[in-house]
Simulated scan of single mutants.
Amino acid sequence: MLGPLFRRSIVAECSALQTRQFTTSSVLQISRKKNVSTIRVPSKKAQAAKARRKAAIAAKEDEKNLKLTLEDAISVLRAVEVASPRATYELTVRTQLGNGAAVPRGRVNLPREAKAKAEDKILVFAEGRIAEEAKKAGAHIVGGVDLIDGILNNRHRATTILCTPQLIRAITPKLGRFLGPLGLMPSERRGTVTEDIAGYISRLRGTSEWRADRAGTIRAPIATMDFPMEDVVTNFRQFLSSVKRATGNSKEQDAGDRKLKSAGGARPVTPITKVLLSSTRGPGIRISDF
């Protein structure tokens, strides 16, 4: 018979054989950090070089488009409209608006109007002597801050709004957001904030207003087919001169430019990208000599 010690040793060996063997090697640690890719931001010099390359490519593509001189374009459109002597020449000027740039607008006095002018309705914020002068000069509505509610409620409608420097701070908080999008808010840059209200109204006589749309495109009739070519050319040059002054593309300075320059500022330039002349039934022709 086996002794007790011998039996215990055999049982221990059998138990050791039946026990599952586990590895004691170290566990591989997997990094759980996200692989964040770094975005390479180009330098200002690289961005400027890229812009120049794109501008050069656009200029080459633009050269492929057909362009005519102003007189040749007038002759082509006249031939198209030979049976319609009252057809209208329409001038289209496309500008490139930057971020936050004001929509171009201005006034022009064409030597020979293509159609009857619509009468301006002038509203003036003024008090005292200046208010009396504005009434004598032909302003339709004259008053102080009491006119604000009438404007907001559309009781007072005007195509031109002028204001004295003394009242501009009083009307801006309530009317700035209302009149600003309409292009009617008085502004020193446009000369509609002034003490010389009577002089401004006198300068309005005989002029018509033009304004670009939100895309920066200006459209205006400048003549009819029965105008002599000299009148069409003169109207074209006069209108485009007004657009260039308003967009900062002209060397000529108006009163607003001189005031900005004396204050140490400058009117931002809005580039003119295309100038086209078309007619009622004719095509739009690019003008090369504008």
Rank of each mutant, 00 (worst) to 15 (best):
S31Q: 08
R94V: 14
V76Q: 10
K54C: 01
D120A: 12
E63K: 04
R112F: 04
V142G: 01
R112M: 09
E71K: 14
V142M: 01
S31F: 06
V124D: 01
N99H: 06
Q47C: 05
V124C: 02
P104D: 09
L97V: 11
L97H: 09
A79L: 13
D62C: 01
R105K: 15
K121V: 07
K135N: 05
L91K: 06
L70D: 03
E119F: 09
A139F: 05
I122Q: 03
K135I: 03
R32D: 10
H140S: 08
T69Y: 04
V76K: 09
A79S: 14
Q29L: 09
R107F: 13
E90K: 11
D72Q: 15
N65W: 07
G150Q: 02
S37K: 09
G98R: 09
D120E: 13
A83Q: 11
A56R: 05
R40G: 07
L123Q: 01
K50N: 02
G100F: 10
P42L: 12
E132K: 04
N65I: 08
D62K: 02
R129M: 00
R94G: 12
A137P: 01
D62G: 01
Q29A: 12
I57V: 00
V41D: 04
A56T: 04
D149H: 08
S31K: 10
V36D: 14
G143L: 05
A126M: 01
Q47A: 03
G143A: 06
G106L: 13
T69C: 05
I122T: 12
T38Y: 14
S75Q: 13
G98W: 09
K121R: 08
A48N: 10
A102T: 14
K121Q: 03
F125W: 04
